[in-house]
Computed example of a mutant assay.
Amino acid sequence: MVSVKLLSLAALVGAAVAQNTTALRYMPFGDSITEITCWRSKLWDKLQGTDYANTNFVGSGKNENNCRNTKYDRDNEGHSGFLAINIANNKQLVGWLQRNPADVITMHLGTNDIVQQNKPVNQIIAAFTTLVQVMRDSNPKMKIVVAQIIPMGMGNFNAKIQALNQAITPWAQAQNTTESPVWVVDQYTGYSGSADNRDGIHPNAGGDDKMVNIWYPALLGAFQAARADQVAAAAEAAAAERRVMPFMA
């Protein structure tokens, strides 16, 4: 005879797995190109037809940006005018992740470091290293998607942006781990700083479309990896519970 306790355990395990694989936490992290644009709303729309429709966007920002979308999850950690170097040096991401933990994070940073203060590429990359460590201190299994940033349609900044983007690939390869992968997406190639930006800096509707189409496949891979972590953790917890629960015939 199968015991009621074993049946209850099976039900509890199934419930635990379901609970632990429902809502992934995703943080869009960056500067104004994350905060005051509409690619986030378009990304949310694309996710509605997938297994990740209930992904919980997280962050302290909740601005709307006139995206003509009343449904999307507005939470984000985009901060207009912020430099990657300052975020790293001032340990701001530490508090942001403490208040809004994440499983997956996207990072589009470096524009203000170049445009505002002409910071050297090696200093920006060092800041990226610090920020990745903060992400992993918050969640050792953080899935990280880093952008080679979009071009500008103003000034003479694109040579420096290209130098930063070129440095991002080998940097990410050195940062990559099995537990906490780092993916690089190319937001520069095929993007026009003049035609795809509304003001030379921030994406217009066409630029938003281009950005989301680059983020989307990488994020699906990151979400899949994060979901696999959830399933493995739930299975491990269930196995541990079975080991300590006495068998009743």
Rank of each mutant, 00 (worst) to 15 (best):
V13T: 05
L9Q: 12
I33Q: 00
M27R: 09
K5P: 13
A23S: 12
E35M: 07
S41A: 14
A16R: 05
A10T: 14
S32C: 00
S8K: 14
V13N: 14
T34R: 03
L7I: 11
A18K: 01
V17Q: 00
P28F: 06
R25G: 02
S41H: 09
D31F: 03
A10M: 15
T37M: 00
T34M: 04
E35H: 04
P28Y: 02
Y26Q: 06
W39E: 00
G14H: 13
A18T: 08
T37Y: 04
S41F: 07
R40H: 03
I36L: 09
W39M: 04
Y26M: 15
T37S: 02
E35L: 11
I33L: 02
A16L: 08
L7N: 10
T21R: 03
Y26G: 02
G14F: 12
K5W: 05
L12Q: 15
T22F: 02
I36P: 01
A10V: 15
S41C: 13
Y26S: 02
L7H: 13
K5R: 15
I33G: 00
S41K: 07
N20F: 06
A23V: 09
I33H: 01
D31I: 05
L9D: 10
S41Y: 10
P28C: 05
A18P: 00
T21V: 10
Q19N: 07
T34I: 08
I33S: 00
M27F: 05
T34N: 12
L12Y: 14
L12C: 07
P28N: 05
L24H: 07
L12G: 14
G14N: 05
S32G: 03
A15V: 06
A11L: 11
Y26D: 02
S32R: 01
R40C: 01
S32D: 02
V13C: 12
T22K: 05
Y26T: 03
S41W: 09
C38S: 06
